[in-house]
Every structure is written in C-alpha cells, then in structure tokens.
C-alpha cells in the first residue's frame, strides 16, 4: 500500500458499460465510464473527486461500495471491524469479497446521495429510516435502537421528536441530515458523499458542509466527497482528484493543486469558476467545444481537442498517469514544461 494510514486503495479500476442497439440488443460499443483509475484515500481525510457531468465520479463511488461490479481492477479496504485480535486491520479486496465479508464491509462503508428527496422511503418514519440499518445488521433493537436513533438525530442537528414524522414534512436540508444520520448509524469508517449539497439551497449548503466537518472530527470519519463544484471541493478536501472522461488527469493536495496546477484541464476548470467578487478579474480560459463522448473518446490524450497547449504527441500517444513527486500525480505529456496559471487570490 502507498503509505501507512491508507484506508482505501483503488487499483487500475475500470468500468465499461455496454451500449446496446437494435431489436437484438447487441452490444455495439462500450461507455468507458471509469478507465483505469488509481487512487488511495487516507484515514481521516476528505478526498475530493471533481469533474464535469459524465466523467465517471458516481461510477467510481458506487464501484468502491460495490453497488456496481467493476469491469477490471481492485478496491482494497482496510477494515478494523474484520480484524482479528492480533491485527490492527484486515485488508480486503472489496471487488472479490464473499457475501459474508461484504455484509460486514457494508457497515464500514456508507453513502450519502445527492437527492435528499428520492433517497428516503416516503412511507417510513424518520425513526424507522435512520434505525433500519441497525435492524438489518442486528446491531440494536427495541429501546436500545430507539436511543441510538435519538442520539444520531441529535448528532446531525435534528430533534428527537422528529422520529415520528415522515420525510415529506422536512425541508431539503433536513432531509439531507436524515440521510446523513442513517449513513452514520453503523459507525462506518468511510462515507462516500455523492454531491451531498448540490440539490440544496445556497444558505443550507453551508449548514450541511459544516455538519460534515464536525461529524468527521467527532467520529474520525473518512470522506470520499464527490462534487462538480470546484469551490466546494476546494473548501472541504485535503486532497483532490480531477477527472476527465473516465480518467484522473490530476491529483494533489488541495493547496498544491490550486497553487501549482500541472494539467491544462485543471487550469481551465479553475479559471472558469465564477468568483463571487466583482473586482476579481482573472482572464477566463475558454475551452473549445464540448466534452467528448466517453463511448468514442479522442485519440491520444482525451483532452487534446480542447487543449490549448496540445502538440503532435498529444494526438497520437496516450499520456500515462504518473507521479510528479510528493503527492502530486498527473496525466499529461507536457506537465514538466508547462507553466500553468494558479488560482489568483482575491
């Protein structure tokens, strides 16, 4: 493993979805949703995954939780729960785990969804929703379960008497809190938060971000934080991976990424974000064209048709994902020679 306090490692992960056509539903092509991704997440950190719609963020998150099966590659998780008395943790490949091991892993890894409206069962009370994992995993029942639920609701800033109410009686932000309480019920080590604040009103987003930060301190949680909003990812993450068309194009510690970007896509993405300051006048780098289809990605570097630095080699050869030193990784032929623009401080 990459270093001592690594909790999760994703190795050469690939997920190709078949594209079917015609009455025979023949497979005519594949969507390379995740195309050879390597990353590790350290215990107690927030790892941000950012990129534009369809670049494969959700697919990575769901493959890690084995909600979908990968096409190739591995997901190594260090479980404390599965460790025997002589070891600190047990290393398991999630993608090859037996159903029994998988059931234990489900307690270690939880997910918070983007849409607080559709992710909660409308016919269950909040108490039942939050307490359900405790029941399913046989962790607590009866009045003990009720106590746990009450405690969880308190931890996410809801009231005990909310237990008897139904999801539709709550606002978006409150529903997201319910989802978070449910994810916390089994005392997981890792939480995959897939766009957890995108559906919320601006004034509510900060409440949920602060809550996630507080819970991390309190319970020693590790987050995989998936979002398309670069400002939010920068705010919450210790390290950030930038994705483009199923690949990680750059990964670094947050300050390093924003102060010293090495990939032209990262540079363009950062410059495109509208900054809430009318005096902020950094020239925007406007990328040409649209994001290409992952069914039929461009030759060479996937980014080359939109890249203002592209040279001949970029059209013909696929750059490898490589280590630049420290914790900085990049997928670009020219990373060593380019002098890219960092985020200008306001």
């Amino acid at each position: 493993m990459a270093s001592d306090n690594v909790l999760l490692e994703v190795k050469n992960l690939k997920k190709y979805f078949p594209v079917r056509k015609g009455i025979l539903r023949r497979v005519v092509a594949h969507v390379k949703a995740v195309d050879d991704v390597d990353l590790y997440i350290k215990e107690g950190e927030t790892f941000g995954l950012v990129g534009e719609s369809g670049c494969g963020k959700t697919t990575i998150g769901r493959t890690i939780l084995r909600l979908i099966e990968p096409t190739a590659g591995g997901v190594i998780f260090r479980s404390k729960r599965l460790a025997n008395s002589s070891e600190q943790y047990r290393e398991v490949d999630v993608t090859a785990a037996s159903p029994k091991v998988m059931k234990a892993l489900r307690r270690d890894m939880q997910i918070i969804f983007q849409d607080p409206y559709s992710s909660l069962n409308p016919r269950m009370t909040v108490g039942a929703i939050v307490g359900e994992p405790l029941l399913v995993h046989g962790v607590a029942r009866g009045s003990e379960r009720e106590d746990r639920v009450r405690h969880l609701l308190g931890a996410v800033g809801l009231k005990p008497d909310h237990m008897k109410r139904y999801p539709h009686e709550f606002s978006g932000g409150q529903r997201q809190r319910i989802g978070i309480a449910r994810a916390l019920a089994l005392e997981p080590q890792l939480i995959v938060a897939d766009e957890p604040i995108s559906a919320l009103d601006v004034s509510i987003q900060a409440q949920v971000l602060n809550l996630l930060e507080d819970l991390q301190d309190e319970f020693g949680l590790t987050y995989l934080f998936i979002a398309h909003n670069l400002s939010v990812v920068k705010h919450i993450s210790d390290r950030v991976a930038v994705m483009y068309l199923g690949r990680i194009v750059e990964l670094a510690r947050t300050e390093e990424l924003f102060d010293n970007p090495k990939h032209p896509y990262t540079e363009a993405l950062m410059s495109a974000v509208p900054v809430p300051d009318p005096d902020y006048s950094a020239e925007r780098i406007i990328l040409k064209g649209d994001v290409p289809s992952p069914v039929n990605p461009p030759s060479g570097c996937y980014f080359h048709p939109r890249c203002r630095y592209a040279r001949e080699v970029c059209k013909t050869e696929t750059p490898v994902y490589r280590h630049l030193g420290g914790e900085h990784f990049v997928t670009c032929h020219l990373a060593d020679s380019l002098n890219l623009r960092p985020v200008r401080k306001g």
Binding site: S171, G173, Q174, D201, V202, S203, I204, Q205, A206, Q207, L209, N210, E213, L230, S231, V232, K234, H235, T254, F258, M270, V273, V275, P276, D277, Y280, V343, R344, K345, G346
Partner: peptide, 22 residues
Amino acid sequence: LMSSIPSLATKRHRLVPIEGVV
C-alpha cells in the same frame, strides 16, 4: 449569503451558514 459560500479565490475558513430555513 456571502459568508455561507466558499470561494476559489479566498483562503479556507469555516463557513458561517444562515441558521434555519426559508
């Protein structure tokens, strides 16, 4: 509103949300 949104151009700091809901 201003203090509850993170900005790319400022240093990381704890956000100050607006309490409650609309």
